[in-house]
Amino acid sequence: MIYLFSAYTVAWLIIFSYLFLLFRRENKIREQLHFIEHCLQEKKNRKMVR
């Protein structure tokens, strides 16, 4: 029974760790993207005011 438990625990740990990493990576990149887009938009607006 201990082997069965260990195998499924390890498998699900690997899957959920990968999912967690993927979600974290996506959030980080999305934040970066929003920041850059925001900066570029602000720059454009300033140019238009001038």
Partner: peptide
């Protein structure tokens, strides 16, 4: 599900790269 997520992340990375090149 995982492939779709991975591709979305790769595309966002590509977009960031493009913006950085513009800057």
């Amino acid at each position: 599900v995982l492939v779709r997520k991975g591709v979305r992340i790769a595309r966002m990375k590509e977009k960031i790269k493009m913006y950085m090149e513009q800057v």
